[in-house]
């Protein structure tokens, strides 16, 4: 049986689904008998989810959009003029 340390090293690949079938089976075998590793897996996963959701909410503020539009227009005008 693989130990907890090895198990936690593989979490990344386990979640991505890129582990070999054999390795994945022994990992899942380990999870069956190891509540602390299950807790770790769950909290690792939800950390990833909650952190990426929080940071990916970013939208460009209206004023920035306006500025960037103006900038693009200005840049193009300059080029056309040259």
């Amino acid at each position: 049986m693989i130990c907890c340390r090895e198990c936690l090293e593989l979490l990344n690949d386990y979640i991505d689904g890129t582990l070999d079938g054999g390795v994945r089976d022994s990992l899942e075998e380990h999870f069956k008998d190891c509540p602390p590793c299950i807790s770790f897996l769950n909290t690792y996963k939800s950390t990833t989810e909650v952190a990426s959701k929080t940071l990916s909410e970013i939208e460009i503020p209206e004023v920035v959009q306006v500025k960037l539009r103006e900038f693009v227009t200005r840049t193009l005008k300059k080029k056309e003029g040259s």
């Binding site: 907890c4 939800s46 950390t47």
Partner: peptide, 16 residues
């Protein structure tokens, strides 16, 4: 031997 010995709190449900 690389095994965990302590309890680990599973707070994953709180994140939602």
């Amino acid at each position: 031997s690389g095994f965990q010995q302590e309890k680990l709190l599973d707070w994953s449900n709180s994140t939602d």
